[in-house]
């Protein structure tokens, strides 16, 4: 039983990390219908800038803040220079964002060097708590807490705030929301920046958890995030959380009990969901560029 609980906690922590990456993407891909394959690059930049600012300023929280600011800036530039000319054209979005992903990856090597970089765990989150035979690693508990807080904030903002209503309405009918006096282009830039900042924050939180970061990590995790968004249902924050937890738990349990399956379990889950619920576990309709 203790083993099961330990694995479950690890799986939830992994799921929360995936949620942090996927939550930004579900805003960009799900709500704005932009296929942003550079999203993983923002995750990697978040990891690098988080570690950079943490080490430079000797403050973990400032490291996270540095990653968020980096994500906001890169998100703004990505929207302005890369995505804006290709709104509404998925083929062009795939081509240009994939290209930009490679640019972001190579730029990391130029700025931070080509070698793997160690990512220290902050002192306050080192070690673990023991509750009976159950081991709770402090940093994983922290990740779970951050993931939950971000979920509640994002869900509440989208569901209840005026800006959340505007974003949802803008996705359903872009012409109409403009005819009601809303500058939807500006709103979409802000959504893109927030989505990018979430990816960067995910990267910064992931770094101490893995202990080392490398430039290509964005390529791997970007695809992972897309799969979670598809499983969860495009544009759905609760769907992304559920899918991320599902994937995190499935990966952790299969890695322990059936390691041979752990590489493909995410694909199997996606396959099953697409067969029985092609719209994903949760779905908000009206996802279009109308």
């Amino acid at each position: 039983m203790e083993l099961f609980i330990n694995l479950a906690i690890n799986g939830i922590a992994m799921g929360m990390l995936i949620f942090l990456i996927a939550s930004g993407l579900t805003l960009i891909f799900g709500l704005m219908s932009v296929l942003n394959f550079a999203h993983g690059g923002l995750f990697a930049w978040g990891a690098y800038s988080g570690v950079f600012f943490y080490v430079l300023l000797d403050n973990f929280w400032l490291g996270l803040l540095g990653a968020i600011v980096t994500g906001l800036l890169l998100g703004w530039l990505t929207e302005l220079l890369i995505v804006r000319p290709v709104y509404g054209n998925h083929i062009r979005q795939i081509l240009i964002t994939l290209g930009f992903m490679l640019v972001l990856t190579e730029m990391l090597k130029v700025v931070f060097g080509p070698n793997i970089i160690n990512a220290p765990t902050p002192e306050m989150f080192q070690g673990s708590w023991m509750i009976g035979d159950i081991t709770i690693i402090k940093y994983r508990a922290f990740i779970i807490a951050v993931g939950l807080i971000l979920f509640i904030v994002m869900y509440s903002v989208l569901k209840y705030s005026k800006i959340g209503l505007i974003v949802r309405a803008g996705v359903m009918n872009k012409d109409m929301i403009q005819a009601l006096g809303v500058n939807i282009k500006l709103v979409f830039v802000l959504v893109f920046m927030v989505g990018s900042a979430l990816a960067a924050l995910g990267g910064a939180l992931f770094a101490p958890s893995s202990g080392a970061i490398y430039a290509e990590m964005g390529l791997e995790f970007g695809i992972f995030a897309f799969i979670v968004v598809i499983i969860g249902g495009m544009g759905s924050i609760p769907g992304s959380l559920l899918a991320a937890l599902l994937v995190g738990l499935a990966n952790t349990f299969t890695a322990y009990y059936m390691p041979i399956l752990s590489m493909v379990v995410t694909m199997i889950i996606m396959l099953i969901v697409l067969i029985f619920r092609p719209q994903g576990l949760f779905n908000i309709s009206g996802v279009s560029n109308k």
């Binding site: 949802r168 309405a169 359903m172 009918n173 012409d175 109409m176 403009q178 005819a179 500058n183 309709s285």
Partner: peptide, 23 residues
């Protein structure tokens, strides 16, 4: 831009009503 025209006090009821169906 459309949003600025709307802010000048022009209301618009489109042919398809433009209702945000999920709201």
């Amino acid at each position: 831009p459309t949003y600025k025209i709307a802010k000048k006090g022009i209301g618009y009821v489109p042919e398809d009503q433009g209702i945000f169906y999920e709201l």
